[in-house]
Amino acid sequence: MTMWNTEGTRRGVVQAAALCAALLLPTWGFAQAAYPTKPVKVVVGYAAGGAVDAVARTIGQALSASLGQAFIVENKPGAGTNIAVKSVIAAEADGHTLLMAANALAANMALYQPAPFDAERDLVPVSLVGRVPVVLAANAQTPYANVAALLRAAKDKPGSISFASPGNGSTPHMALELFERTAGIQLQHVPYRGGSPAITDVIGGQVPLIAVNALEVQPHVKSGKLRVLAVLSPNRSAIFPDAPTMAESGFPGFEASVWYGLVAPAATPKAVVTKLHAEVQKALQTKEVRERMTQVGGEVIPGSSEMFAALIKAERQRYEKLVREANIQPD
Rank of each mutant, 00 (worst) to 15 (best):
A31F: 10
G297A: 05
D201V: 05
A91P: 11
R227Y: 02
V88L: 03
T37F: 06
K155E: 07
P77W: 07
K157D: 11
S196V: 15
N5R: 14
P133W: 02
A138T: 09
K76W: 02
S162K: 01
Y46D: 14
I312V: 15
A140F: 04
A283R: 02
I83L: 14
G50M: 06
P208L: 09
E325W: 01
V43A: 12
K321M: 08
Q61T: 13
T58N: 05
V202C: 03
L128E: 14
K287E: 14
K313D: 11
G68Q: 10
D331K: 03
A22W: 10
A16S: 15
F251V: 01
Y112G: 00
Q329F: 11
K313M: 01
K157M: 06
A107Q: 13
F308W: 08
G159D: 00
L178A: 04
W259I: 11
Q188D: 11
Y35G: 03
G68P: 07
A56Q: 09
Y46E: 14
P36V: 07
E248C: 05
N213A: 04
E74S: 12
E291M: 04
L178H: 08
K313V: 12
L123W: 06
L105H: 08
V126S: 10
P330G: 04
T2R: 12
P133S: 07
K275M: 06
P166A: 02
L67Q: 13
A101T: 06
V263G: 11
F240Q: 07
T27I: 15
L25R: 07
A34R: 14
P265F: 09
S64C: 03
T27M: 12
V258G: 11
Q186L: 11
K282D: 08
L136M: 10
N139L: 07
P158T: 02
G253A: 08
L123D: 08
K155I: 05
K38Q: 15
A102M: 10
V52F: 00
A138S: 13
Y260M: 12
A17L: 15
A149H: 04
R181K: 13
F240L: 07
E92Q: 15
V85G: 05
G261W: 06
E279W: 02
V202S: 02
A198V: 08
F251M: 02
K86G: 02
L128N: 12
E180Q: 15
E288S: 11
G250T: 02
G204Q: 08
A91E: 01
H220R: 12
K321P: 03
P241R: 08
V134W: 00
A56T: 05
W4N: 14
V296I: 15
G169M: 07
L311N: 13
F30P: 00
A278M: 01
A56L: 06
S160N: 03
K86Y: 00
Y112H: 12
F240A: 06
E320M: 10
E177S: 01
N5Q: 13
G298H: 04
E299L: 11
C20Q: 12
L98P: 13
L284E: 06
V212E: 15
K86P: 00
D242E: 14
V300P: 08
